[in-house]
Design a protein around this nucleic acid. Structure first.
Lengths: 221, 221
DNA sequence: CGGGCAATGGCACCTTGGTCCCATCGAACG
DNA sequence: CGTTCGATGGGACCAAGGTGCCATTGCCCG
C-alpha cells in the first residue's frame, strides 16, 4: 500500500526526467505518484493497481504502445481509471479521439503545474464518484444475492404490480406459497414496502418481467 | 418549414464558398442545409429553429462571436442542438475545451465528405435520442399536471411506502380522505399499481418526501 | 443419516387497501 | 346565484396483503 489514504497518480511516460518532475509536483500536491516507463510495464502491474482510488497520466508518444492504445487496452480489461493525456506535439484529431474515448483531459507539454494539478483533481473527483456509485450498486446487489431463484422470480412479478393471486396463477403455485416467497423477499432485501422494493430493484438494474405496466391513456375524458 | 421530415443541418460560417459546398454535400446526403454568415444571424433566427430535429456546424474562427462562444450562448438560452465544430487552423486546447463542453466532434478543414457526413449522422442520432427522452418525460409530466396539490402530496407519501393511516396522521386528515386522494392519484396517473406509480414518479423525476426508506441492514444474521 | 433449507401448501385471523353509498364546506366560474 | 370542483369525512363491505402455526417433500452437506 502507499501511505495513508492518499490517492495514487500513475504516470506512464518514457521520459524519465519528465516523470520525475511531475512526480515531485504530485507529491507536493498531496498525492502519491507511481511512474512506469512504458505501457507494458503499467499493464504488467495493472492487476495490483486496480480497484484503488487514483488516476493515470498517459504520454501519447512512447516507444511501443502509444497512450491511446494503452487506454483502449485498459478499458478492454475493465481497468477504467480516469485518464489524462500528455503530449509534446499534439494534433487535433488525436486529442478529439481521446476526449471521445472518455479522457478527462488532453494537455500539451510543457504543462503548467496549476493546470496539471487541476486536471488531476478533476480526474480524482470523477474516480471518487464512480467508486461511490459502484459501492452503492454492489451493496444493493448483495441483497439480491441472498434471494433464491424462486424468490427472485416472485419479486419480479411483485415489482411489476401483479397481485398475489395473479402471481400464483402465473407460476402455477398456491396463494400461500406466493405470500411465503414474498415475505422472504421483503425480509432478505430489507425493503419495508413495495415502493422501497421497486426503488431497490431500479437502483440495482432489475426490471419487471413483462407486466401490465402503466396505461397508455389514463383518462379519455 | 423545410421539406418533408428531413433533418435540418444549420451551418454558421463566414466563408460563403465553404458554406455552399457543405450545403450541397448535406443536401446530397438527404438533409436540409440552412446557412448563416455569422453567430449573430444564427442567434437572431434561433427562436424559430429551436425544438426541431437538427444539428449545427460551427466555424471556430469568425468575425464577431467565435464558435465556442456561440455554443455557450446557445446552451445559456436552452438551445442545445448537437454541435460539430469546424476549423481551418485548430489547436489542441480549443478542441479539448470544445469536447469538454459537449461538442459531438471537432473537425479540421478541409474535411472529407465521408467524415463530415459521419459526424452529422452521429449528431443527429444524439439529437433524436434527446428528443425521444424529452417527449417521454413530458408525457409523464402531463399526467402529474392533472393532480391537485393535495393529491401530489399524498402521492409523495404513497411512493415513500407509507401506510394510509400513517399518511393520515402526517397530514392531519382522516383515513377516508387519504383513500379518496389516493384513488384520485391512481385514476389520474393511470398507474395500475403502487409499483407502476413508483416507476412513473422515478421516470418523471419525482421523489418521495422523507420516508422510511430501505433498512441499512436487512438481516444481521 | 440427521439437520438445514428451499419450495410447497392448508387454516385462521387481523390489518390494509379499495370501492360503493352518502354528506358538508368554501372557492372559483359563468 | 347556482354549478362545479377540491378537500374533507362517515359507514358498510369486500378484496388483498401479512402473519403465525403447522406439515410434506426433496436436496445438499457435514
Amino acid at each position: 500500500m502507499g501511505a495513508m489514504g492518499m490517492d495514487t497518480v500513475y504516470i506512464v511516460d518514457d521520459d524519465e526526467n519528465f516523470a520525475r518532475g511531475v512526480g515531485r509536483l504530485i507529491r507536493a500536491a498531496g498525492w502519491n505518484p507511481h511512474a512506469f516507463g512504458s505501457a507494458a510495464d503499467f499493464l504488467a502491474a495493472a492487476g495490483d493497481v486496480d480497484s484503488r482510488a487514483g488516476c493515470v497520466l498517459l504520454d501519447v508518444r512512447m516507444p511501443g504502445m502509444k497512450g491511446p492504445e494503452l487506454y483502449r487496452a485498459m478499458l478492454a480489461r475493465g481497468l477504467d481509471l480516469p485518464v489524462i493525456f500528455l503530449t509534446g506535439h499534439g494534433d487535433v484529431p488525436t486529442s478529439v479521439d481521446a476526449m471521445k474515448l472518455g479522457a478527462v483531459d488532453f494537455l500539451e507539454k510543457p504543462v503548467g503545474g496549476e493546470v496539471l494539478v487541476g486536471a488531476i483533481r478533476a480526474a480524482l473527483a470523477r474516480q471518487t464518484e464512480r467508486r461511490r456509485q459502484d459501492a452503492e450498486r454492489r451493496e444493493i446487489e448483495a441483497r439480491f444475492a441472498k434471494l433464491s431463484p424462486r424468490e427472485r422470480e416472485v419479486m419480479s412479478h411483485v415489482i411489476a404490480g401483479r397481485l398475489n393471486k395473479q402471481i400464483a396463477a402465473d407460476l402455477g403455485i398456491s396463494l400461500k406459497t406466493v405470500k411465503a416467497h414474498r415475505a422472504k423477499v421483503m425480509e432478505k432485501t430489507g425493503a419495508g414496502s413495495v415502493a422501497a422494493l421497486v426503488d431497490l430493484c431500479r437502483a440495482g438494474g432489475i426490471h419487471a418481467a413483462a407486466a401490465q405496466r402503466v396505461n397508455p391513456e389514463p383518462l379519455d375524458s
